[in-house]
Design a protein around this nucleic acid. Structure first.
Lengths: 257, 257
DNA sequence: TCAAAAGTGTTCATGGTACACCCATGA
DNA sequence: TCATGGGTGTACCATGAACACTTTTGA
């Protein structure tokens, strides 16, 4: 796995350039080896893992800020982003442990205050093609890497809660947002697509019924190409048909009525 | 319709008590005479209609702020609230027209600055029992009343857009949030429930099939009571069975797989 | 030759949709 | 007595769920 270093980023003392009391936290999901992955960062001075996040410039829309933050972390343009929840409890950045952690670190008191102050976090999730994202560190961020969703380490503040809610949102959006399109590489097998659904929903799905249903949706193009070197019968590759996929997403859902 | 006056509210010059750059805007929905209604306020000094909204105190959670804002406007406790979208464009509070409107008003320049500054709005919708909410004015708010959702007047800033997104969220939540429970009075007829669904979805639903499906869900108790004085055969009244309703909402939705 | 996953169809049960007639009530 | 909506059942169709055997490939 590739990791990039980016040394051209804002130092601590630039926080005053941002809007106060508002942050963005992002759950970046990827899919690799039939596992759902999440991108986490480790703060250099605190030695604690956290969701990638950041703050908003006064002349920048919230969506643009989220995009900027993620570009910095993944080196990707055009990331699929969804805002899923606001985390607005008064003490979420000042829980037992947060203050102690900061005080133990070598961070100046002005920065400590910024990081401990009451902050409303806007929760986004992002879907990226695992094979194209390049986890990128910056001077403040000692590590940035993928974690299996079932093995995330202890996280700062309420970030474990944020991940939980992001997963729930992802489940709810599986049928009406382009989740597969954004998490899979351009060409994929039916089994890879099914594993993605199984991982997100947390249950197994009948192989034949899944294929029938997916093909009937009309959003997949079957390619004249198979995936070889897999140790068994070579499976056919598919890709999403963007035109019909868009049509489907824009269609009404009927809601059963 | 009852309207209450509340004279004990913060004057203009108290804005500095709130967190800057963040506001809450609420789409309060009610249901009356088979029509979906929305509660709007009219600013005294600007003469323009707007969503009820407000700001957040430093020591108050976002949800608590939304609750407080709505209690002030409806005199209701325990309002059903859902955060549905963030409105984060840079110029959303400073669109063509906003500045002119404020300059024409008699509002002091400090207040003008507060109202025109870049503000991220957290969009909530609320569902209330129309018959129990009491639209309440305050010294700054000259009018507060229900509008038919199809007849909302011109609104300040991007509030028309906020309403549009709230409606879409409401449609999406119709099957997995307690929409009917919160919009209808305790006792209601099957037709009233169906009209609510029809209004929100914007389409007609077969009367017999709707009743069958609703009853099969097992969330309705049929009462030994009818609604009289209706000019036709007296319809049976129902009420929601909270226990089975909760069970249903907490259940998985299957997502078709 | 063995292990692992691919490819492929049918049956059954459930749920959705379409549809029409008589009844009770208040004006 | 009339207008309005209430109450009720069936037939057809579409969709979902369950389920097993043969084939291909790489190790």
């Amino acid at each position: 796995m590739q990791t990039k270093k980016n040394t051209a980023t804002a130092p601590y003392d630039d926080f005053s350039k941002f809007l106060p009391h508002i942050s963005i936290d992002c759950c970046v999901f990827g899919f690799h080896e039939n596992q759902l992955k999440i991108l986490l960062i480790k703060w250099e001075k605190f030695g604690v893992w956290s969701l990638p996040g950041g703050f908003i410039f006064p002349e920048e829309s919230v969506d643009a800020a989220a995009k900027r933050i993620l570009q910095e972390r993944t080196s990707l343009q055009n990331i699929f982003l969804e805002q899923f929840k606001i985390f607005g409890e008064v003490n979420r950045t000042n829980l037992p442990g947060s203050r102690e952690m900061l005080e133990r670190s070598e961070v100046d008191s002005q920065t400590q205050q910024w990081l401990l102050q009451r902050t409303i976090s806007l929760g986004y999730y992002a879907l990226v093609d695992f094979s194209k994202a390049i986890p990128t560190t910056t001077p403040l961020i000692a590590d940035c890497r993928w974690w299996d969703i079932s093995k995330v380490p202890h996280l700062i503040h309420d970030h474990a809660d944020i991940v939980k809610h992001a997963l729930k949102a992802l489940q709810g959006h599986l049928l009406n947002k382009p989740i597969g399109l954004n998490l899979l590489p351009t060409k994929f097998t039916m089994t890879e697509l099914r594993r993605l659904y199984e991982t997100i929903l947390g249950k197994t799905i009948d192989r034949r019924n899944f294929e029938k249903k997916m093909l009937k949706l009309g959003i997949l193009d079957r390619l004249d190409e198979v995936k070889t070197d897999v140790g068994h019968k070579a499976p056919v590759l598919y890709r999403f048909n963007l035109a019909t996929y868009d049509e489907l997403l824009n269609a009404d859902f009927g809601f059963g009525f």
